[in-house]
Amino acid sequence: MSAVLEVSGVSKRFGAFRALTDVTFDVREGETLGLIGPNGAGKTTLFNIITGFLRPDAGGLHYGGEAIDHLSPERRVSRGMVRTFQKSMVFPELTVRENIAMAARQRAGVGLRWGGAQRRLGAAEARVHQLIGDSGLRRSGGERMSDLSYGEQRIVDLLISLALEPRLLLLDEPTAGLAQEEAERLLQIVRHHDARTSVVLIAHDIDIVFGACDRIAVLNLGQVLCCGTPEVVRADASVRAAYLGALADS
């Protein structure tokens, strides 16, 4: 399996605080990689660097075998690198359908059109319908976003990202604040979406990560402690000590 994303030797400081130190790992095609670690371990900072919202002090990124350090966030998105955020980032004043269409139009290359391109716009609309239908949301799409429950908003948040047909999908705690059942449904939508999509999943719920991921990377104090299959990670002494200590003993 080839690597979609290679992170090599990435470091980042905020003043005197070392947010990330020499972080190296890769994400393979079609796999789901869990990214876990205690609060402040640097998970979100890593996402911000991968997606181009922050620049690393040292180290570099390769995406599809190509160096992407010079690319703006927008350019990275256009190559199929899509992220979500810790808190739900939907457009509350717009309808469900318009929320998802915002991404679908951009994917179809008509995000900033004014007039014309009726066929591609129609295709984007159809895609939105399909996503809402497949999601199991019992919603027509005409509802205003702010009228939806939190769990539903998180699902639409995910659908927005999926409408971009990502090659690499970076999910930052998509299940935070959701009930077990809602979280399961959300992950199911991700998995059923497209087998070729690689997913990086940040989550606090250990059960979810160990249940849903092919491999897991453990981050602590800005360093990768261990990266491997759930079995390997479970057995790793440093991870036990730093992170799973309490769980492992119980």
């Binding site: 509350p92 991404a103 139009r105």
Partner: peptide, 20 residues
């Protein structure tokens, strides 16, 4: 679409750049 994108940039600018 351009006008919709403008509304999006007002409501959620960070998400808009994350959408490309």
């Amino acid at each position: 679409p351009l006008g919709r994108a403008l509304i999006g940039s007002r409501e959620q600018p960070i998400r808009m750049s994350a959408l490309g």
